[in-house]
């Protein structure tokens, strides 16, 4: 059974004429890693807010269709209850950290305390979350003394300790240095392996291609396509939707190099290496 079903979702912000989400339907299986891409204002964040129930329960406006998580219609669940099912990680961890807690451990406990989770269960969940995100060694550190990557992993730990079935990440690594970014992506991939469904909004197409099982391409509030990264990034009309394919796909397109069994262009470093070695790219004549 699909863990997340979106059926004919439509939404218009108050005081606007345009549909921010225009008849979107898609099904996501439990434990999938989904990338959402599209130009700015294409509806990516609105879709995330609808999955998290903030639309229509916090942001009012005209709403139609359904978002179902395991047959629970999210708009019928109060936002404070839904955060036990859907967790959201913001772009900037500074916006997520409470600022009221003295240690990483207490910060991760914050959500659980508010949910009224019993102490023993709370300790178990926090330890598990810290282990999963590889931040146990920082448990007694002051949250604001952490690096950006460490702080973002702490923010994710706070979300996963609440045991959500779905985690939404809205450009979670844009403010991080490259290694901090990689740390976060690897931690998120590990969560996926634990059966948590990941929804990732990201402008870094190389990361989307590297980590996503499937990619949703949005434009003007409409779902243009929902398929594997290879199929999405091989589209000839991609730039029309304000999206630049990963560097490796662009090289594949320019050199007309495709992956043998799929006919798609490469999207990751590994795939590009494979198709180029097939062509003899390790020994360019010019060197």
């Amino acid at each position: 059974m699909a863990s997340l079903n979106i059926e004919h979702l439509k939404y218009k912000y108050p005081g606007t004429d345009r549909l921010a989400l225009n008849d979107i339907s898609l099904s996501i299986e439990t434990g999938e890693f989904i990338g959402i891409i599209g130009r700015n204002e294409s509806g990516k964040s609105s879709l995330c807010q609808a999955i998290a129930g903030l639309i229509p329960n916090f942001y009012k406006g005209a709403y139609g269709g359904k978002v179902l998580i395991d047959d629970i219609e999210v708009k019928k669940v109060p936002v404070d209850e839904l955060c036990e099912t859907v967790g959201t990680v913001f772009q900037n961890p500074f916006n997520q950290v409470t600022g009221a807690k003295a240690t990483v451990y207490e910060e991760i406990a914050f959500g659980l305390e508010n949910m009224g989770v019993p102490k023993e269960e709370m300790i178990r969940r926090i330890d598990r979350a810290m282990e999963l995100l590889d931040i146990s060694k920082y448990r007694d550190r002051y949250p604001f003394d952490l690096s950006g990557g460490q702080m973002q992993r702490m923010a994710i730990a706070g979300v996963i300790a609440m045991h959500p079935q779905v985690i939404i990440l809205d450009e979670p690594t844009s403010q991080l240095d490259p290694q901090g970014r990689e740390e976060v992506f690897q931690a998120v991939q590990k969560l996926c392996g634990q059966g948590i469904t990941i929804i990732l909004v990201e402008h870094n197409m190389e990361k989307i291609a590297q980590y996503s099982n499937r990619v949703a391409l949005l434009d003007a509030g409409t779902l243009i396509d929902f398929d594997t990264p290879q199929k999405i990034f091989s589209r000839v009309d991609l730039e029309q939707y304000g999206v630049e394919a990963p560097v490796y796909t662009q090289i594949g397109k320019r050199l007309n190099l495709t992956i043998e069994d799929t006919g798609c262009y490469p999207v990751t470093l590994e795939e590009a290496k494979t198709v180029l070695l097939r062509k003899g790219g390790n020994d360019p004549v010019w060197l």
Binding site: G38, R39, N40, Q91, E171, S174, Q175, H203, E239, G242, V243, E244
Partner: peptide, 12 residues
């Protein structure tokens, strides 16, 4: 200071 954050292809 970090001009490309939140920018899509066209913005970059």
């Amino acid at each position: 200071d970090e001009p490309t954050i939140a920018q899509d292809y066209a913005g970059k």
